[in-house]
Simulated scan of single mutants.
Amino acid sequence: MTALWSIVIPTFHRPALLRQAVQSCMTARRPDGVALEIVVVDNSATGDAAGVCREMGFGDIRYVHEPRPGLAHARNRGIDEARGEVLLFLDDDEHADENWLVEIDRAFQASGADILCGWIEPDFAVAPERMTAYVTDFYRRDVKRPSGADVSDILNYVGSGNSAFRRTRCFGGGIRVDERFNHFGSEDIQLFRTLVAAGLRIAWAPHAIVHEYIPVERASVSYLKARRRLQGQQRVFGLAIGGPRQKLKVPVFMAGGAAQAGLHTLLWLCSIVSGRRDRATEHAIEIEGGLGKVFWTGASHRRIYGKSPD
């Protein structure tokens, strides 16, 4: 008996990267007895991803236009459109290894989990000349746990890019992505938090590998600082809008953020004095993460995602 799997790829004005993402899915080895549909959810107002799907001949590709801007709208539309027993999310700036689907299948069978999150390896447009190890680790997803390990307790270190869900178990009861995160990001972390609260389990699948394209600007120090601060803000905001037990964690995270900023400030000063310029820059980036946890209020009102490209 053939099982259907659905790969959902939300996209927004990135035709070249989308083409690479779709092609990697089409050429990936499929587990025995698995058929595939690729659902491209175009979140642009103009529907410009239709041309990419048309060029690739459709076939297993199903094009869906979701003109309401926002990450949550796009992911929810993909969830609603998917027909497979397993739903996989791949971002449009990612491409999968040849054995990605086979390794997802193995991890599901071995772990018995409801949700899987796999390894992400950065694919730099230009290899960073400074802080190479730090910048690589910044974008690499490696939770440093054994294959099949439960990672439900470290939601902040996983994400929806390269994730797989038992669709009926996870979404059959009406759980969807919180639309308050449409333009702020971290909508996937909040989704995982909701699923875990519902009793579902997330496992680590390190052999299911995808590569994320990192353009030059996203390896700059200014971008890394802004992103680390945003990550801190996202984590606390997600707790602040949760239930009473989640809200109680807000002051704890804020205090932790203050301690993080203070510690890295001290380490930054030591690095400056010792002439370790790159290490000082790394600590300066981590200071921003701590400050984000402290100064998080109001940040969610900024429109960070969903802007049209210049």
Rank of each mutant, 00 (worst) to 15 (best):
A113E: 01
T27H: 11
A219W: 00
I38E: 03
L191Y: 00
L263E: 06
R169W: 03
S44P: 06
V143I: 14
R229D: 02
D97C: 10
G199S: 06
V158H: 00
E212K: 13
D48T: 13
F171C: 08
T281N: 08
T168A: 15
G256D: 13
W5D: 04
F181D: 03
H301Q: 15
G238H: 05
R201P: 00
R29S: 14
C270M: 09
R193C: 04
T265M: 07
D80C: 12
R141C: 10
C170W: 09
C25T: 07
I304A: 00
A35K: 12
L195N: 05
M1G: 15
R30L: 15
F124E: 05
E98Q: 13
N182L: 04
V126L: 04
A203D: 03
W296K: 04
R19E: 15
I202R: 01
I304Q: 01
L88P: 02
Q231I: 08
R302A: 14
A50C: 07
V151T: 05
I214R: 04
Q23Y: 06
G257R: 03
P206T: 09
L71W: 11
I38G: 02
D114S: 14
G290Q: 05
G243Y: 07
R83E: 13
V52N: 00
E103H: 15
A203L: 00
V273Y: 07
C53I: 06
S163I: 06
A110I: 01
E187C: 14
L263M: 11
L291S: 02
D60P: 13
G57K: 05
Q246M: 13
K247M: 14
L200H: 10
G262N: 10
E212S: 15
P215W: 06
A198I: 02
G51R: 09
V210E: 07
V86P: 03
T27M: 06
I209M: 08
S160P: 08
N43H: 10
R14G: 01
P10H: 04
I79N: 07
H283E: 12
M254E: 14
V52T: 11
I104P: 00
D93T: 09
G185F: 11
A133M: 08
P309G: 09
F237W: 14
V158S: 01
I154P: 03
F295E: 04
I214L: 11
D114G: 10
V143H: 06
G298V: 11
K225P: 07
T11D: 06
E55M: 11
T132M: 08
R235N: 09
D278L: 05
F171Q: 05
R167D: 05
G57T: 06
N76G: 14
R30K: 15
H211V: 05
F237P: 07
E37Q: 15
R54S: 10
Q231P: 00
I272E: 09
K307G: 06
H65P: 05
L267D: 00
F12M: 09
T27E: 14
L101V: 10
L17M: 11
S6I: 09
